[in-house]
Amino acid sequence: MNTRVQIEIALGILFISITATILIIVGLNEESRMERFALAQSAQAIEVGAVLFEINCSDCHGSNGQGVPGLCPPLNDLNFFENRLTDVGWSGTQEDYIVSVVSSGRATSTRPEYFGAGIPAMPAWSEHYGGPLRDDQIRNIATFIMNWEATAGEAIGQPALPSEPVGQDITIELPEANPARGEGLANSQGCVACHISTPTGPAWGATASEPAIGARAATRFQQADYTGTAVTAEQYLFESIVLPNIHVIAGFAPVMPETYGQILTEQDMADLIAYLLTAFE
């Protein structure tokens, strides 16, 4: 008959051996577990970065990083991942470049002919430079942006213009218009960001003191303080889009980009004007 002491010694040895076996198995799998965790960690950084990008960056760079012409460049195209570092003479990695630019901002744009409107070109986002974001948040945003690299080849960066840009001569004859297409342009060109969503520019819809954009366009060029050259409602809208600073409405700053004449075609312009004249009552 075994004594209690002997039984406990036997059981203790059994427990210790099982524990040791489990630990050896765990040890053999540690390498792959650590790799898996590191992978999950960057996955989480991308998820968190996506949320931060949506809140802080998408207004300007587009919800999918496609950019807003005249305002902010696309971040999901081949140009950004292949040419940007040489354009700006950056010697580090692309991710470091993103972290640096997001943290401290940019005073001037790389391609002011396309995206030179904002002053400064890019605000500083780091809390060290007066922005709202912590360092780890900025790194997460950079990880999220870097995740576009794999699909950047398919993304069309600066779209080739289908025909000649419309230019700044507001007296030219415009083709027949399609207001529905104009609505699409208002969204894709980012007009709505300032003229509907935020009070940066005059709202298109009717307000308490002002009628809608169509009615305003029809009367404004006849007012005494008008400083432009338009003589019809269509020309007034044309002029406001391609030469926005020729007549700035009181209470608003001259911040609208002057580049739309190089971006929009004659057809685009006709469609946009038709949309603005008819869509808002």
Binding site: E8, L11, F15, T19
Partner: peptide
């Protein structure tokens, strides 16, 4: 012995 036994049991349970 009892304490060493309980210790090995405790470690075993924690690892499990």
């Amino acid at each position: 012995t009892h304490e060493v036994f309980l210790t090995s049991l405790g470690l075993f349970l924690m690892v499990v």
